[in-house]
């Protein structure tokens, strides 16, 4: 089950905690993975960690629309085959209360977290629709459904991603291409490691499964949605949050 032999998977934000785990999981299941990120060193390390076989990387700054538009073609050039699986994982946060949030903070988050995934979906769908096959998994967040003080921009982008994915799922369904969302809860990554222990404990107390999430928890959900076995699942959001929000 869940084998991806012969498939090419592009994972954005692959140098981050969750993106790295997604890439490693898809690779372990047989996919040829193309890692995209902004930090070349981190990507090169990731390539090495995956053993150098069936793995390539493309440096791309997705805040630049032209780079987002070109990424699919570049990934296909590197892999020497069409992208069968697109995982839109790259994202950033600019957290602050709305009263203090500047237009730039809003625009940058919406651009990188919503517009750039759209551009990548658009470019990837072109080939997927023609080939009558493909998987797109967009990584959103639990806050897209629940909201979160200090994250008006991020939660708007992630909620937008869910609506976008449902629309794309309807457009692409007749061609056997699926578009789904994985919405992580609180995951331990280098980004969240810096939070004070007291805050982490408080978060943990709100999670029925009694622990914070691991990147691998997200990667497993992504793998399922990328697989042949998930061929009758589209437009859905898989919440992976330890039960923190049951939606």
């Amino acid at each position: 089950m869940f084998k991806l032999d012969g498939k090419v998977a592009l994972v954005t934000g692959a140098s981050g905690g969750i993106g790295g785990a997604i890439a490693a999981t898809l690779h372990a299941q047989g996919a040829h993975v193309v890692l995209s990120g902004t930090r070349e060193n981190a990507l090169q390390e990731q390539v090495k960690a995956l053993g150098g076989e069936r793995v390539d990387y493309v440096v791309a700054n997705l805040s630049n629309p032209a780079e987002a538009d070109a990424l699919i073609a570049k990934a296909e050039e590197k892999a020497g085959a069409p992208v069968d699986i697109l995982v839109n994982n790259a994202g950033l946060t600019r957290d602050m209360l709305a009263l203090r949030m500047k237009d730039e903070d809003w625009d940058q988050v919406l651009n990188v977290d919503l517009s750039s995934p759209f551009r990548l979906c658009r470019a990837a769908l072109k080939g997927m629709l023609r080939r009558r096959a493909g998987r797109i998994v967009n990584i959103a967040s639990v806050v897209g459904a629940t909201g979160n003080a200090g994250q008006a921009n991020y939660s708007a982008a992630k909620a937008g991603m869910v609506g976008m994915s449902k629309s794309l799922a309807q457009e692409a369904g007749s061609r056997g291409v699926t578009v789904n969302v994985v919405a992580p809860g609180f995951i331990v990554t280098p980004m969240t490691d810096v939070l004070p222990d007291a805050q982490k404990e408080k978060l943990q107390s709100q999670i029925p499964l009694g622990r914070l999430g691991k990147p691998e928890d997200i990667a497993a959900a992504v793998l399922y949605l990328c697989s042949e076995e998930a061929g009758w699942v589209t437009g859905s959001t898989l919440h992976v949050n330890g039960g923190m929000a049951m939606i």
Binding site: K126, L129, R130, E171, S174, R175
Partner: peptide
């Protein structure tokens, strides 16, 4: 053709 085919054709 369906609506998606016509869009693909135009492209």
């Amino acid at each position: 053709a369906d609506s998606l085919d016509t869009v693909e054709l135009v492209m």
